[in-house]
Amino acid sequence: MNHQNHQPNHQGERPAMLKVTGLQKIYNGGATAVEAVRDLTFELAEGELVCLVGPSGCGKTTLLKCIAGLMAPTGGTVELADRPVLAPPPGMAVVFQEYGRSLFAWMSVRDNVELPLKEKKLPKARRTELVTESLEAVGLTGFADSYPWQLSGGMQQRVAIARAIAYEPQVLLMDEPFAAVDAQTRADLEDLVREIWQRLGVTVLFVTHDIDEAVYLGERVLVLSNSPTVVQDDITVDLPVERDQLTTRQDERFTDLRARVYAQIQRAKRGTDQPVA
């Protein structure tokens, strides 16, 4: 009944980029310790786009923070390109859900995108090039001098994405990036992520609570259990590479996969009743 352990699927062909092994996180809240994440093990091959779904409150954000090196796990390891992650690694970019709070409100869009590049000590010419390219990639070419708060929510999230891709990361982490934008913007942004992923060949870990989104975007969907979290299912999405909001979502295979993920999540929710070991 456990599907999560290293199925010899296509990821064997490509070297592992991100490796999470036996990850555990326990919060010490005074007298009571809460085990948010119990034992998570999974891998992302280089260039893979994997979606992580789970019932709400299943520790997705905790997991992501551990992977990003923002939080120390209680046990287990995270490895990026075979090197352990102990602090935010240079090869990783993160797009947070709270777009309004992850952008520097006192900097223009250009400065927001450029700041990490300055910290990387890139020469000015290269920075300008990267900023221009990434803003073009997300369709914000004319907005370089605007402030983030002058833009709509969807556009702000595009700025965050532009900043992430200009950083030229090996792995792009996205923490429910579209949970706070409206439905139509969301569809556009999903296609944008697919497009960028295909074009840049970056490894993407996309956390979401939306089953449709996970199936539509991912090459693979990891279903997390309820807290304390383990990987409950690992589903390969065998949809064509070229996806389209209209046809893909009507595809029979899409509905099948969606149903499977849905069933797994329902199972995960019922897991609450289980006594915590």
Binding site: P73, T74, G271, Q274
Partner: peptide, 18 residues
């Protein structure tokens, strides 16, 4: 239903009281 899969993690697990 059980979702546990017990195996020794790299960190060998913390003490039970966390």
């Amino acid at each position: 239903m059980s979702t546990t899969h017990t195996r020794d993690t790299v960190a060998a697990g913390p003490p039970p009281d966390g």
